[in-house]
Structures are given as structure tokens and as C-alpha cells.
């Protein structure tokens, strides 16, 4: 028997936020909750409806991917942070979030699939017996086909060449993703029922979709949904 037979539960989250002009409310919500997020998750664990079922998280990390439109916003189209460990790096996380401003975007579709590619390729925590790798996307726009902005000098190398290839990056139970654990992964979409979000809902596993309405920010219940998604997945 091993010396330390104790559960280690590590949660990594990537917030993918469409930071174009209409998304100000969502960005403000993330800013408002950045400092409370860890505390709210822990509280949901400890104040479960049945006090007999307390659960705990060993580590929680969050990173942020801000995206817009390569053709319209060039080198401001994609901004990412590293993972911040909470609660130790709450201040840095808040500072990073506070630097985000809603602007730009060009036409209606944005480069949300490239943002997802960044998120899937995150440096996920490999340690711990139980892991959750959760990607949360907030947007009120459809997506361009992947590679739409590839002619722009700011477009990164190494992106998937097709939606099918991005689907392979996400993986499934027979073809494990090279980047994200199939059992650990969850994709929570706050996105409209428009391409390519509907394609993702109709072909990727472990996706929870909340259809969003253009121009509306995140309501209280959607914030609770994220907290519950973490609690219910352990």
C-alpha cells in the first residue's frame, strides 16, 4: 500500500472571453467576481445541501484567453495569461483581468475557434488523482471558420487546419486528445446557437451549452452554473 492514500483534486479552468465591443457586461462580471471566485467554489464544496458530504479541492488554477478577430484587430486579436494559482495569486489574476477592455471585433463572427485551440492546448495540471479541466466560453457572436484570419501576420502557427482537426484536439473516448484528458475535460459554452458553436454541441462530448443572447451579460444564475459545474463534477 502506498504511504499517502489521499485524494488530490486539482481543478484548472480557462476562461475564454470574447472581448469585442458588445461584451462589456461579461468582462465586467469576470472582473467583479475574480477575487471571489475561489471563495465561492470552496464555499459550495463546504456548504453542500447535505453537510455530511463536504468535498475539497487541493489546487485551483485559472487562466484567461481574450479573443477578437485577427483580420480586424491584428495583434490585439488574441491575448492569453498563464495559469494563476488561487487563492495565492488572486491579486495577479485580478490585475490581469482588469487590464482587459471590450473593443474591436470587425464583422459579427469572431475567432472563437482559435481561442478554443489555445484553451485546449493549455498547460494543464497533470498531477492529482482526480482532475477537472474546464473551459468556459462567453460570447454573443458566431465564429469564423478556423483559419479565416490566417493571412494576418499576427495569426499564430500551429493552429488546426480544419474544424475536424480541432475536433481531434478535443478528442473522444477512443481517440484521446494529445492535449486534454478525456475524463477531466468539460466545455461550458455561453454562446449563441450559431456556427460553429452548434457544430461543437453536435459533435463534441462533455459540452454544456447555454444559449446566450447578443448584448446580454452574464446573469447571476450563469455564475452559479459554473460553480455548480465544479462541485457536481467531483
Amino acid at each position: 500500500m502506498q504511504a499517502d492514500m489521499m485524494m488530490k483534486y486539482n481543478v484548472d479552468m480557462v476562461f475564454c472571453i470574447d472581448a469585442t465591443g458588445s461584451m462589456k457586461k461579461v468582462i465586467d462580471m469576470v472582473k467583479d467576481n475574480a477575487l471571489n471566485f475561489y471563495r465561492d467554489v470552496v464555499e459550495s464544496m463546504e456548504n453542500a445541501p447535505d453537510q455530511m458530504q463536504k468535498k475539497s479541492i487541493n489546487t485551483m488554477r485559472i487562466r484567461v484567453v481574450i479573443y477578437r478577430d485577427y483580420k480586424a484587430d491584428h495583434d490585439m486579436a488574441m491575448m492569453t495569461t498563464r495559469f494563476f494559482k488561487l487563492p495565492e495569486e488572486e491579486e495577479q489574476f485580478r490585475d490581469a483581468i482588469n487590464s482587459v477592455q471590450a473593443h474591436g471585433g470587425g464583422d459579427e463572427p469572431e475567432d472563437g475557434l482559435e481561442a478554443l485551440a489555445y484553451a485546449i492546448r493549455s498547460d494543464w495540471n497533470k498531477e492529482g488523482i482526480k482532475k477537472r479541466n474546464i473551459i468556459v466560453v462567453w460570447t454573443d457572436a458566431s465564429t469564423h471558420p478556423i483559419g479565416y484570419g490566417s493571412s494576418d501576420p499576427a495569426y499564430p502557427g500551429g493552429m488546426p487546419r480544419s474544424f475536424s482537426e480541432l475536433t481531434e484536439w478535443w478528442g473522444d473516448e477512443q481517440m484521446e486528445s494529445p492535449f486534454i484528458n478525456d475524463n477531466a475535460k468539460r466545455l461550458i459554452l455561453f454562446a449563441p446557437e450559431r456556427p460553429a458553436w452548434t457544430d461543437i454541441v453536435d459533435s463534441w462530448n462533455n459540452v454544456i451549452h447555454y444559449p446566450s443572447v447578443a448584448g446580454e451579460g452574464m446573469e447571476e444564475f450563469t455564475y452559479r452554473e459554473i460553480i455548480d459545474a465544479i462541485y457536481n463534477s467531483i
Binding site: 475536424s164 457544430d199 459533435s203 462533455n206
Partner: peptide, 23 residues
Amino acid sequence: LNPVYPVDEVKLSDTVRARKKKI
């Protein structure tokens, strides 16, 4: 949430589609 049947409208390669259908 799992598995998800790849409907015809989604653009997937034949290999990926066949694998997902089999699952």
C-alpha cells in the same frame, strides 16, 4: 453529454465521423 452523435451537418473528416459513429 457523452457520447455525441456526429450529425451530417457537422463538417468532419470521414475518419473522425466514422469513429464517432462507432462509439
